[in-house]
Design a protein around this nucleic acid. Structure first.
Lengths: 242, 242
DNA sequence: GATGGCCTGATTGTCGGACAATCATACGAT
DNA sequence: ATCGTATGATTGTCCGACAATCAGGCCATC
């Protein structure tokens, strides 16, 4: 008979402080935009040193729960922006040796349904945003960096047009990986830019007409085209990104 | 004629240090499992104070790039685990007032294709893992907490069986929200547990037979059933979770 | 030889205090 | 009303300190 003891875990103070503040934010006791007390004040309230508070703040900051309005000193409670939290996810995936194929396959599954939903739910504003993104890609795609950025931005607009935050956020890490993976392909395939622009225009058009079926179809083709691009650029699909 | 100046941005030291270390990890100069130098040593190398180093470490730690092996003092480089990074995402979504409908819709789009791919790519080990998860739900579902946890775990096994890390990670934030949303439903609908167990068994069976078409279909039904559950529990779908 | 106790150095977690740079605000001069 | 200035609050960074813990070596005991 082996006696088992539970692991006794001693949580360092900075993490307790972080947890305490995070809980207040999650419970909405601290609302968005509200300013956090000063560090010395927090230290006093928690009964710990300011250094300890600061370490806790760094943790919350990188989790997106706190931010500093530019040109301000006090930290304010913030609802984490999608891009911010997704960055960690993209980084994690990159470190896990994600391959071109994995990203492409995920896009294949995720984007067509999103286009379909976007076609149903889009507002006029979404459509304008989409049209603007499409135009930006068409007009400003000479620099590789700008081109891939605008391409990702188009997907982001589609995501917003779904009016489903979960979907919008789910695709964000993908887009974080799409950029580097597009970057190595787009310059090796001369016709890539034109094909992407054409695909965007078609998708824009059918989303404009609220033709969800067509939106799904064209988006699927758009994604398939990416794969063709990789093959034309002679990039092995099982090669890791970045 | 207005003269425009670029915003001059002064990055605090702790963030520079964090960025410097992160870059080394991303570039794989520091490999997984490798131990980071001690704080005093880092402070010496960067030419900053130990407090500054510590704030940087907290940032990297919460991003998952560093971790401390339990019972160890030195921090080691780590590849962020899916659950860890997804937690921030779930938290972000919760703060953005995500509704039951949004989660459900995302599941609707994401899970059936995942089941389909899992049916194609699953190994024997994946299948065993899936069977074990299914069994755990069937046998140990009295406690609400355990039930929802096992239910989410089943989806995680499907995710792993796809052998696509991107898809596996994309669903993780969803599962983080599935748990609280299931929790409020499962006890109000007496037949929920039995229906979930039955659905899992059917999905397990067709994934076992590598019948990808059937896997997609049954998974779709499984997800539709969740919605029915919400309606039976008289939960408004446009109500926010938690 | 294996086990356990003990010592020493290294490392982290936390503390207290310090100071320059910046921000917020009020006050006063023009 | 606009601008400059004084003042206090706050952050970023530094220094030094100490207890608790960890890693490893040494030694006695069985």
């Amino acid at each position: 008979m082996s006696v088992e003891f539970d692991q006794i875990l001693l949580v360092p103070g900075y993490r307790k402080v972080a947890a305490a503040i995070a809980e207040r934010i999650l419970s909405r006791e601290l609302r968005e935009g509200e300013r956090l007390p000063a560090e010395t004040e927090l230290a006093r309230q928690f009964g710990v040193n300011r250094s300890t508070v600061r370490e806790a703040l760094r943790e919350l900051e990188s989790g997106g729960l706190l931010e500093r309005r530019p040109g301000s000193k006090l930290m304010t409670v913030s609802r984490p922006q999608h891009r911010a939290v997704a960055k960690d996810v993209s980084r994690a995936l990159a470190l896990h040796d994600v391959t071109f194929f994995e990203v492409w396959e995920a896009l294949t599954q995720l984007e067509p349904p999103m286009a379909e939903i976007a076609a149903r739910n889009r507002t006029q504003i979404d459509l304008d945003c989409l049209a603007a993104a499409c135009q930006r890609f068409t007009e400003d795609n000479l620099e590789t960096g700008k081109a891939v950025h605008h391409a990702a931005e188009f997907f982001r607009c589609v995501g917003r047009a779904t009016h489903n935050q979960v979907l919008g956020l789910a695709q964000e890490p993908l887009l974080g990986l799409l950029e580097p993976s597009l970057r190595v392909m787009i310059d090796k395939v001369p016709q890539a830019r034109a094909r992407i622009a054409a695909a965007q225009r078609r998708i824009l058009e059918v989303i404009g007409k609220r033709d969800s079926e067509a939106a799904r179809t064209w988006m699927a083709k758009h994604i398939r085209d990416f794969r063709k691009g990789y093959e034309l650029a002679e990039i092995a699909l099982d090669c890791r990104i970045a």
